[in-house]
Simulated assay, not measured.
Amino acid sequence: MLIVKIVGIAFITLFIMLLLKQSKNELNTLLTLTACTLILLIMVEPLKEIINFLREIADKANIDTVYMGIVLKILAIAYIASFSSALCKDANADSLAAQIELSGKIMILVLAIPILMAVLNSILQIM
């Protein structure tokens, strides 16, 4: 199972970090970044499956692919911002983490504008 690999990587990284905590604190950030990147790379294939599934559903439901693309971009921004923010918080860079979170939220709002316009146009056509 994939989750066992991910948890294994996380626990091995945690164990090494605990061993190095007393002597090499600056290596902990590098270890965390390496482990998180490795876990993210492991998750690429399941993410591809989810994207393909959503595309199939969109095709069957006759949903415009533009809107599905926007939704997928919004999800990607949310996950990347959350991931990056957590890494910054782990490195005690809370202000940088807050800026990443704010930037992600602004980008999501910008991408959501076409969807909001489509919803508003649909409501106006009904009235």
Rank of each mutant, 00 (worst) to 15 (best):
I70T: 02
L2T: 14
A91T: 05
I12W: 08
K73V: 00
N62T: 03
L87R: 01
V4W: 12
P114A: 08
I115T: 10
I42T: 09
I77P: 01
S103D: 09
I123R: 04
Y67L: 06
K48E: 07
I106V: 15
F83Q: 04
Q125L: 11
F15S: 13
T37Q: 04
L111N: 06
E49Q: 13
I77C: 04
A118E: 12
N62F: 07
L116K: 02
M68G: 04
I74G: 00
Q99V: 11
T32W: 01
F11I: 15
L47C: 05
Q22A: 13
V44M: 06
L47Q: 03
V7E: 04
A76I: 03
R55K: 13
M43Q: 08
A91Y: 03
A10N: 04
L2N: 13
N28M: 15
A58N: 05
I70H: 02
F53D: 02
L116Q: 07
L120I: 10
A91L: 03
Q99W: 12
M68C: 03
P114D: 04
V66S: 10
Y67V: 08
I50L: 05
A10R: 03
T34W: 01
L2V: 11
I123V: 12
S103H: 05
L27N: 10
L87M: 08
A81G: 12
I51V: 11
A78I: 02
M17P: 00
A86Y: 01
G8A: 09
I16M: 14
I50Q: 01
L31E: 08
K5C: 07
L124R: 07
I42R: 08
Q99L: 15
V66N: 09
K89T: 12
V4Q: 14
K89I: 14
L38P: 02
L102R: 11
M43C: 08
F53T: 04
L120S: 13
E101W: 06
I51K: 05
G8C: 03
L30H: 11
I115C: 06
I80H: 01
T34K: 07
I63M: 05
C36K: 05
I9E: 05
K21D: 10
S85I: 04
A93W: 06
P46A: 09
E45L: 09
N28Q: 11
Q125S: 13
V44H: 05
C36N: 09
A91E: 01
K5Y: 13
Y79K: 03
I80T: 07
I57M: 04
L33K: 09
I80W: 02
D90E: 10
L40V: 03
E101C: 06
A86K: 09
E26D: 12
G69I: 01
I70D: 04
D64K: 07
D90H: 07
F83I: 02
M107W: 06
I126L: 13
L30E: 13
K89L: 15
N52S: 13
N28K: 13
L96I: 15
N52G: 09
M1T: 14
A93K: 11
I108P: 00
N28H: 07
I3Y: 09
M17A: 11
R55P: 02
